Amino acid sequence: MKSDSGSNTLKYVSLVTLTVQNALLGLSMRYARTREGDMFLSSTAVLMSEVVKLGTCLSIVYIQTGGLRQLFDTLRDIIIRQPVDTFKICVPSLLYIIQNNLLYVSASHLDAATYQVSEK
């Protein structure tokens, strides 16, 4: 019984966290694109977010594998030695980058409420 209670709590905490994160992402993106002053390139923001994700993923793999040598071995085994699987991941990744750039364009041109409704 106790694990069911903990599982339900985790589900609701995850739901609330993702809801707040999604709302704050849209609002902060809208604010950043409509404020006065110098504007940044949306492609730079998308690139930097992907660099942060890459760093996070590499850190997790480093911790799981137990060392730098094992990290490189794992990356070689998964990325280099499986080119078909790598290509299958590259296509959706490219579409995801285009989608993120378009989200910045829409944040620049739509009001906040319309952006939140049309975002997903």
Rank of each mutant, 00 (worst) to 15 (best):
M1R: 09
K2H: 15
S3F: 14
S3Q: 15
D4K: 14
S5N: 15
S5Y: 15
G6K: 14
G6Y: 15
G6W: 14
G6I: 15
N8F: 14
T9V: 14
T9S: 11
K11P: 02
K11A: 10
Y12M: 12
Y12V: 15
S14R: 13
L15I: 05
L15R: 09
V16L: 14
T17P: 01
T17S: 14
T17A: 14
T19D: 04
T19M: 10
T19S: 08
T19E: 07
V20L: 13
N22E: 12
N22W: 07
N22F: 06
A23V: 12
A23S: 06
L25Y: 06
G26A: 05
G26D: 00
G26Q: 01
S28W: 12
R30M: 07
R30A: 05
R33N: 02
F40S: 08
F40G: 07
S42V: 11
S43P: 00
S43I: 09
S43D: 08
T44V: 13
T44W: 11
V46F: 01
M48H: 06
M48P: 02
M48F: 08
M48T: 07
S49G: 09
V52Y: 12
L54Y: 06
T56G: 11
T56E: 06
C57E: 11
C57L: 14
L58M: 11
I60F: 10
I60V: 09
Y62H: 10
Y62N: 01
I63C: 13
I63S: 12
I63K: 14
G66F: 01
G67V: 00
L68M: 14
Q70N: 14
L71I: 02
D73R: 09
D73M: 10
D73C: 07
T74E: 06
T74I: 02
L75F: 01
L75W: 01
D77G: 05
I79E: 03
I80M: 13
R81D: 13
Q82L: 10
V84E: 05
T86N: 03
T86M: 13
F87V: 08
C90L: 14
V91D: 00
V91L: 06
P92L: 03
P92V: 07
Y96D: 03
Y96S: 04
Y96G: 04
I98V: 12
I98N: 02
Q99I: 10
N100I: 04
N100E: 11
N101H: 05
N101C: 07
L103G: 00
L103T: 02
Y104T: 02
V105G: 04
V105L: 12
S106M: 09
S106K: 04
S106H: 05
S108Q: 06
L110G: 01
D111I: 03
D111T: 07
A112L: 04
A113L: 12
T114A: 06
Y115Q: 01
K120V: 05
